[in-house]
Nucleic acid binder design. Structure first.
Length: 552
DNA sequence: CCCACGTACGCCCTCTGCTGGCCCAGA
DNA sequence: ATCTGGGCCAGCAGAGGGCGTACGTGGG
């Protein structure tokens, strides 16, 4: 076993062996011909159908032995060839495929519960094979009895048996020590925590953990450990990078057997740890524990900067990096110039915008078609400033058909919107609305833009802005584009301070509002504080919005 | 008795990727 | 005003690394 661990690329399998095998076996599977007439029940599960089965034919009373151990194999070497090959030729009607194909990373031998010699044994470690799940049995139990029989048969040596379990040893001292595990006797008590142990060694290690005594120091780093086993494991993780436990299904390998066991659950889908509050089940206890936080609502992780709380440390870490960090890395899309804060969101971006669509999507403005959404949206932008709608009676052109319809009324003289109160007609619905409010609605109170300094009111923001500049109170701040800002709502709230409800006789010629003013911000300077501008009012007065109102 | 070694379980952590709600810019 | 697309963001789970500890056994 040790020798096998020291090799470069061992992997775990069960080896068959005859009596001539080496002595460094880890576990033995005894064939009990009395238990099953068909011989040893060594069964491999196949991906489909019934599992193939083969037997270990007894040879003149010899016992067939199986051992689970790590074995070094060169790439391409058949794991079941050579001196230690388990001689298990397919029986009548049995399938040999799984066995013949057993090379490196190939299926392990599977011992199926209820078959052959193992039918009465408790199930042990669950492992997986290429196309199925293996169930290994308590090989230690099997080992002891078969070892005992072997020894007795050969009269090699006296074997000491435990009366309470199947333990067998060649040494009486080992048996004596072993027998103690069947009692609760723990004579070695820690003077620091009163915890009791069976052996002095266990107590010493325990006390060393208390005192921080770590006799086993790593020669390659500053780490030190209580036991040599810890040191050995540490060295594998950090220095030798030796990973003796290799998955038979994929290329995963691990330092510890328990990690391989955990990994194999990702192949088998086994989820032994079920949540008692919902249907979730986890592959290991740690995940279940983390999951339970979702039921308690607990947020154990707090941002030290803004005190925001999070359910997982990783989430908090990303928050701190992106909200409070400097030089936060961004991920640039390889297909466009977009920068995205998170790698996972870049994945979403790539899926949504740059993935190939089997059915090409046509542009709604022309005949062009695209298999990529991003290309389509970019193409559509080329239509953005096109004035595709032209008046056939003058040089007027516009981007939207509805604008052209309104324009044409100037040629036809059509005024389809008539006031029900006085009979006056208008080309645009908006004009009718303004007329009705001004002349027939006594409850109407129009919005007023008031100069923050002198209080003078204006019906239009642009006029107030012009006045305010002369008033010396404000300065115009050009804005080239509409910027995304989380302060947008606050700006809107500030706007309400400027707006006052005053009866004014304005709202004439609203369609002539200058759009250039919509692209500027007015920033009153009050006590050194820049107040947000009434941007909403600017956009309220755009031509496009008026036309929208007409449509309604 | 002691040590080395292997096994087993647990804990904590990180990295990763998916999901859905939120928000904003643009149509 | 409304809708929609897309980035931002927190929640959440999968997978794995590394270590702590207890325990059993073989062998010197």
């Amino acid at each position: 076993m040790d020798a096998a661990f020291g090799l470069v690329e061992p992997f775990t399998k069960i080896k068959g062996t005859g009596e001539e095998d080496d002595e460094d076996r880890v576990a033995w599977v005894k064939e009990e011909s009395s238990a099953c007439d068909c011989g040893a029940g060594v069964t491999a599960l196949d991906g489909g159908g019934d599992p193939p089965e083969w037997s270990l034919p007894p040879e003149e009373g010899e016992k067939q032995l199986l051992t689970l151990q790590t074995v070094h194999l060169e790439a391409g070497e058949d794991a079941f060839q050579g001196e230690h090959q388990l001689s298990v030729p397919p029986q009548n009607g049995e399938r040999a495929g799984a066995w013949d194909g057993a090379g490196l990373l190939q299926p392990l031998v599977v011992v199926q519960q209820g078959h052959g010699l193992l039918q009465d044994l408790p199930a042990g470690v669950a492992l997986s094979v290429q196309e199925g799940v293996c169930v290994f049995y308590d090989l230690e139990v099997i080992q002891s009895s078969i070892l005992q029989e072997r020894m007795q048969a050969k009269n090699l040596e006296t074997v000491f048996n435990c009366d309470l379990c199947a333990f067998t040893s060649l040494r009486i001292s080992s048996l004596n020590r072993h027998v103690k595990i069947h009692s609760d006797e723990k004579r070695h008590v820690c003077h620091l925590c009163l915890k009791a142990f069976r052996t002095a060694t266990l107590l010493r290690n325990h006390v060393n953990a208390h005192t921080g005594t770590r006799p086993y120091k790593c020669s390659d780093c500053d780490m030190a450990f209580v036991t040599s086993g810890e040191l050995a494991r540490h060295r594998r993780y950090k220095h030798t990078l030796e990973k003796p436990f290799k998955c038979s299904i994929c290329k995963y390998s691990s330092v510890e057997a328990s990690k391989l066991k955990r990994h194999i659950r990702s192949h088998t889908g086994e989820r032994p740890y079920a949540c008692y509050l919902c249907s979730y089940a986890s592959k290991d206890t740690c995940k279940l524990k983390r999951h339970m936080i979702t039921h308690s609502g607990e947020k154990p992780y707090e941002c030290y900067v803004c005190q925001a709380r999070f359910t997982q440390s990783g989430t908090m870490k990303i928050h701190i990096l992106q909200k409070h960090g400097e030089n936060v890395p961004k991920y640039q899309c390889p297909h466009c110039s977009t920068f995205i804060a998170r790698k996972s969101d870049l994945g979403v971006h790539l899926r949504n915008l740059h993935s190939y669509m089997a059915v090409a999507v046509k542009c709604s403005y022309c005949e062009a078609a695209f298999h990529e959404r991003y290309a389509l949206t970019q193409h559509k932008k080329t239509h953005r400033n096109e004035k595709r709608f032209r008046c056939d009676q003058c040089s007027y052109a516009c981007k939207q058909e509805r604008c052209l319809l309104v324009h044409k009324r100037t040629h036809t003289g059509e005024k389809p919107f008539t006031c029900l109160c006085c009979g006056k007609s208008f080309r645009r619905k908006q004009l009718l609305t303004v007329h009705f409010r001004k002349h027939h609605d006594s409850n109407f109170k129009p919005t007023v833009y008031e100069c923050p300094k002198c209080g003078k009111g204006y019906s239009r923001w642009s006029n107030m802005h012009k006045h305010a500049e002369n008033c010396g109170l404000v300065r115009a701040k050009a804005v080239t584009s509409r910027k995304r800002s989380k302060g947008k709502k606050k700006k809107r709230e500030n706007l309400k301070h400027v707006k006052q409800e005053v009866n004014l006789e304005s709202f004439q010629d609203v369609s002539t509002v200058n759009n250039e003013h919509c692209a500027s911000e007015i920033v009153p300077i009050l006590d050194g504080i820049e107040t947000a501008a009434p941007s909403e009012q600017k956009t309220e007065m755009t031509c496009e919005m008026l036309l929208n109102m007409m449509d309604k």
